[in-house]
Design a protein around this nucleic acid. Structure first.
Length: 446
RNA sequence: UCCGAAGUAGCUCAGUUGGUUAGAGCAUCUGACUGUUAAUCAGAGGGUCGCAGGUUCAAGUCCUGCCUUCGGAGCCA
């Protein structure tokens, strides 16, 4: 195999001659000296080209290089005279391609322009750092599951039925079988897996055709969904807490360099420790009312009205989540939700049938809901009546009801949206930076 | 879907109460500079002012419609 050198490991080669294969990130000239910034995907290193130390051809080659031109550079690694980093004293260059005028210049750009050039934007230092953190989060998720006895049990992306109502599904024709929908969750299938393996998870893209245009929504996003037999809601919350702490610790430990590039305040992440506060929906409403945060509702005439106190039974909006979370330095778990605000499969609390044993985990620093979980309804009759209440087609759920006919057990699970976790850990303003090619309501290219 | 804002050079923007040939920085090209850090300095090229109508002696600027994008709300992970 050909010997390969990479910029992130360049400190091992001080005083030695190396070959860097990559792209020109930027170049500064100063008379008989040039300072090309070389990028190879693992990092950036400054080159030093001195006219009196290189051939005329090398000097002329560098003069014609443009931003993002591809090249192979041979040189000697040395300590930077002013900074705590290394530089490459260039001896030779092989120009692979001189790039056309590169659209993403070192100055500011608007978000529309950057989004249109996402295929090039991903080369920039900030974007590569985000994608590295994303990778670490995903690897940490899978490692946690593997190390704790979960079996990977992936669910289909084409599904014949909706799990949480029909308004938010993408549909397509499926041969002679009518419509197929893109999955909005793999949970129902994961429940089948939990009855086979005890503890499973699925992990893949999910799709929601919600016409929501916010900094937190994608139409295509990745979700990890663990599902566990013989877990009640409290076991579920124990697991969620342990899982999130593990992921945050991994990112702090393994992606320090990227967090620094992103200028992330790491002390905020180091505060994410067990135990997370656990408060009921009722207690959350009390906090909201103590802070006098109203529910804003649209009126028939198009105007808005502010309702105080917060009416029991309503789901929380962003200001309510913020009110609940702002006093804490770590994620907050809100559980025992009003049943009408939540999905049909959540188990009713035997002590209070008005609430279900569902839990939302709200991230600190205003990042909102990152996890939604619940204990599942394990009683056949109650589940059937809930499907009827939600006006869902009973026949589509035949196989799912079988899980309650053949060895039904108490079980729980949750779903964690990867992009929202990436946003939180990287402190991003918008989910569009949390995935290489975001799909948004108003954008599906490049 | 609703509310709000914006579209002027490849990019980011300025453009006054409507008034000569629409400007700046970056990028590109030419040149200067042996330690630059979004380098700097001198010069050059680069425009269907989103689209379509309208008002006016005169429209980037005022009016109407449309398109696109951005921000927010609701819903959610």
């Amino acid at each position: 195999m050909k010997k390969r050198y990479f910029i992130d490991k360049i400190a091992d080669y001080v005083g030695q001659e190396v070959i860097i294969r990559g792209w020109l990130y930027n170049i500064r000239t100063s008379g008989k000296l040039m300072f090309p910034q070389l990028r190879d995907g693992t990092g950036i290193i400054q080159g030093v080209v001195s006219q009196k130390e290189v051939s005329e051809k090398v000097w002329e080659d560098f003069k014609k290089l443009t931003q993002e031109s591809s090249l192979i550079v041979t040189g000697t690694v040395a300590k930077h005279p002013k900074k705590e980093e290394y530089e490459l004293h260039v001896k030779d260059v092989e120009v692979i391609q001189v790039a056309e005028a590169y659209p993403i210049t070192p100055k500011d750009h608007g978000i529309e322009f950057l989004a249109d050039h996402r295929h090039l934007w991903v080369r920039s230092q900030r974007q590569t750092a985000i994608i590295k953190v994303r990778e670490e989060i995903i690897k940490a998720c899978r490692d946690y599951m593997y190390d704790n006895g979960f079996t990977l049990f992936d669910s289909p992306i084409f599904t014949p039925n909706a799990a949480e109502g029909t308004t938010t599904l993408f549909s397509s024709d499926y041969f002679d079988l009518g419509k197929a929908y893109l999955a909005q969750t793999g949970q129902l299938y994961a429940e089948a897996g939990a009855m086979a393996f005890g503890k499973v998870y699925d992990f893949g893209p999910t799709f929601r055709a919600e016409k929501s245009k916010t900094r937190r929504h994608l139409t295509e996003f990745w979700m990890i969904e663990p599902e566990m037999a013989f877990y009640d809601i409290y076991d579920d919350m124990d697991l969620i807490e342990d899982f999130i702490v593990y992921i945050v610790e991994r990112v702090i430990k393994s992606r320090r360099k990227e967090l620094d590039i992103l200028e992330r305040d790491i002390t905020k992440l180091e505060a994410v420790k067990k135990p997370f506060p656990r408060i009921t929906y009722d207690e959350a409403v009390e906090i909201i009312n103590k802070k006098n945060v109203p529910l804003i509702r649209k009126k028939a005439d198009g105007g808005e009205e502010e309702i105080r106190p917060f009416p029991w039974g309503e789901d929380f909006g962003a200001p309510h989540e913020e009110a609940v979370v702002e006093d804490y330095d770590r994620p907050v778990m809100v559980y025992n939700w009003p049943s009408e605000a939540k999905a049909f499969y959540m188990k009713r609390d035997p002590e209070n049938p008005k609430v279900v044993r569902g839990v939302d985990v709200l991230a600190p620093e205003g990042y909102g809901e990152i996890v939604g979980g619940s204990e599942r309804e394990d009683d056949l009759g109650l589940l059937e009546s809930r499907i009827k209440e939600h006006n869902l087609p009973m026949d589509a759920f035949g196989w799912y009801l079988d899980l309650r006919r053949f060895g039904s057990v108490p079980h729980s699970g949750f779903g964690m949206g990867i992009e929202r976790v990436v946003c939180w850990l990287c402190k991003l303003d918008h989910v569009r930076e949390s995935i290489p090619f975001p799909r948004l309501m108003y954008r599906n290219r490049p």
